[in-house]
């Protein structure tokens, strides 16, 4: 591990935080199929990588 690895790890933590934030935002805004006191089917979110492809 190097300092760059610490930085990568900080970014990893950030990505995990971002998807959790997304999940939270969705839970707040979603309409549950039940009476509203339960998030019966908690929504989910994720981030994937793409290969870089310059736009025309």
């Amino acid at each position: 591990m190097s300092t760059t690895d610490t930085r990568l790890q900080v970014m990893w933590n950030r990505l995990l935080a971002v998807v959790e934030e997304q999940g939270q935002a969705l839970i707040r805004a979603a309409f549950s199929p039940s009476c509203a006191n339960a998030a019966i089917f908690p929504p989910a979110s994720l981030i994937c990588k793409a290969g870089c492809s310059p736009r025309p």
Partner: peptide
């Protein structure tokens, strides 16, 4: 959703949720 950074697609964000009907 594709995520653009400096004119490139660098990644995707995705989410899913249960719709009522």
């Amino acid at each position: 959703m594709p995520v653009f950074y400096k004119d490139c697609v660098v990644g995707f964000t995705s989410c899913t949720s249960h719709l009522v009907d």
